[in-house]
């Protein structure tokens, strides 16, 4: 037992994990239908899209920045899928557009040193607008066996989507832990100055992060198109905020350099558990959003204040991210 707790301590597991488990137990106790194989599978499945986007966002936050444009990139890639257009061409267009967004973000932020909030906010707006332009503002049903399999198909009784998301998560986890890119992401997030003085190519790493973040968002857009069998120009509109929330709730510090994908998995699942639980308890949809928003803000506030306590210089700052 002590071995287990010792191991847990060493893993540096954020409080979020215990939080998720507690809230899960809470809903299981007050609502019988909550802890059933069907509902657990549903929660897992509903977490997939958000988790995919959040993984990309995690990398941006780890490097000390944020990518607000992921939601719009999702929308843009979703509407690239059209009936009558060969799927391969549509997918290429989707990922191509995403790569373009990633490059624009990366060049503006890393090379031209434009503020990352304003840059990704602008590309977010541009993306949202372009998605409407491409789709002419309408959601269309899509019938593609391949996409349907991605979103709704099952392998050995488990949704393929879940398998795919797990594979992607493990892949990025591995990338962050063992590759040069991942190592540099943590170093730059820890201190850009130190990274630069130690000879790291800060600009290139930043650009890579925004590129990866965009490409992953495009994948999420494709997946959700498959899941809903329709291409909607506003499908991603709330994902930027929710992904950022999932990352921060998952314990990745907004100051960069601390945290990782593992926390994000729990952050995402926690958000989805809360959504599922509230829905089951019959809370109206409008209230669900408010409650989720409140929970997110409270957790962010708690996170920032605990960070600040540790930071002796915290007193001197007005903003957390200066």
């Amino acid at each position: 037992m002590s071995k287990v707790t010792g191991w847990l301590k060493k893993q540096n597991i954020p409080g979020i994990v215990y939080g998720s488990v507690l809230i899960f137990l809470f809903f299981s106790i007050i609502e019988k239908k909550f802890f059933t194989p069907y509902n657990v599978m549903l929660i897992a499945r509903n977490s997939c899209i958000l988790l995919t986007v959040s993984i990309g966002m995690t990398m941006a936050v780890l490097i000390g920045q944020v990518d607000l444009s992921v939601g719009s990139v999702m929308s843009v890639s979703a509407v690239m899928v059209k009936n009558g257009v060969p799927l391969a061409a549509a997918l290429m267009a989707a990922f191509g557009a995403a790569a373009l967004f990633g490059l624009v973000n990366g060049i503006l932020i890393a090379v031209l040193k434009v503020d990352y909030w304003i840059t990704t906010f602008a590309t977010m707006s541009i993306g949202a607008g372009l998605a409407l332009v491409i789709s002419d503002g309408s959601t269309v049903p899509i019938s593609s066996k391949f996409l349907d399999f991605l979103g709704n198909g099952k392998v050995c009784g488990v949704y393929f989507l879940i398998v795919l998301t797990i594979v992607l998560t493990v892949l990025i986890l591995f990338l962050l832990k063992r590759s040069k890119l991942g190592y540099d992401v943590y170093s730059i997030g820890g201190s850009e100055n130190v990274a630069r003085l130690s000879g790291l190519d800060v600009n290139r790493t930043r650009m890579m992060v925004y590129l990866i973040s965009s490409l992953i968002a495009a994948l999420a857009g494709i997946l959700i198109t498959g899941m809903t069998n329709s291409a909607s120009p506003i499908v991603g509109s709330e994902y930027s905020f929710n992904a950022l929330a999932a990352v921060v709730i998952g314990g990745t510090s907004l100051n960069g350099g601390k945290g990782g994908v593992a926390g994000t998995v729990f952050g995402t699942v926690l958000l989805r558990i809360i959504a599922s639980g509230l829905a089951m308890l019959g809370v109206p949809a409008t209230w669900q959003k408010v409650i989720q928003g409140l929970i997110i803000v409270v957790i962010i506030v708690a996170d920032v204040s605990s960070e600040k306590k540790k930071d002796v210089n915290g007193l001197r700052r007005i903003y957390a991210n200066d």
Partner: peptide, 20 residues
Amino acid sequence: TRVGVAPFIATYGTDFIALG
């Protein structure tokens, strides 16, 4: 100013809650 949340995130949160 008191908690130290980045302005974008703080107002994004208020935005989300107020609209909800």
